[in-house]
Amino acid sequence: MKFGVVILPGSNCDYDAYQIIKTIMKEEVGFLWHQDKDLNGCDCVILPGGFSYGDYLRTGAIARFAPIMQEIFNFAEKGGLVIGICNGFQILLEAGLLPGAMLRNSSLRFVCKWVHIKVEQENTPFTNNCQRFQVLKIPVAHTDGNYFISEEGLKKLKENNQIVFHYCSPQGEIDPVYNPNGALENIAGICNLKRNVLGMMPHPERVGEKILGSEDGKHIFSSIVNFVKGKAN
């Protein structure tokens, strides 16, 4: 299968994503330039972390209008897999491919640390290689990760099982103490209704090797590979 990593002006996790897929997952991967109007036959598009367009106006607000985004809209509409990590998640929210919005962290500080997240949904293309309620150790690094959605919006997310990850303790306890940014109800990642678009604040692409402190990021990418190769539904 083939992954495509989007490079926007200010992306800085693009090579991390490229690296884990090429050398750890040993799958085909290429870069997609923001001015491109073609996804080069990718099976999964990765919107990486970073500070696209300097985070001007709002995080992800300008990136959402990059030429490559029109292709990504069409691709997602047809059921193509799109994963947005950190700034990528912010872009998906601004683009309306995922519901809600990001506010400044409640601490107003850039937060860069290890967190634990609980897999609430294992029946997605991005988590089928996880157990339900499995706890993953993955780092976060952001200033705007304070997820917000209206009350009705939150109700819909719950009804449709779209909340994929919650911030939690190493044992899986969900409590405000383990919330790094003030996100509503400890939400760390969500998917769309069709479950082919995922946004998450933690960085799975940074943790594919033991020497880096965790290998839990591999679960996300191996799930995608399983799904595309037809080993999971």
Binding site: L57, R58, A61, F65, L93, E94, P99, G100, A101, L103, F148, I149, S150
Partner: peptide, 8 residues
């Protein structure tokens, strides 16, 4: 479309 995000 751009200057404000109507969600928030």
């Amino acid at each position: 479309k751009l200057l404000a995000n109507p969600v928030i």
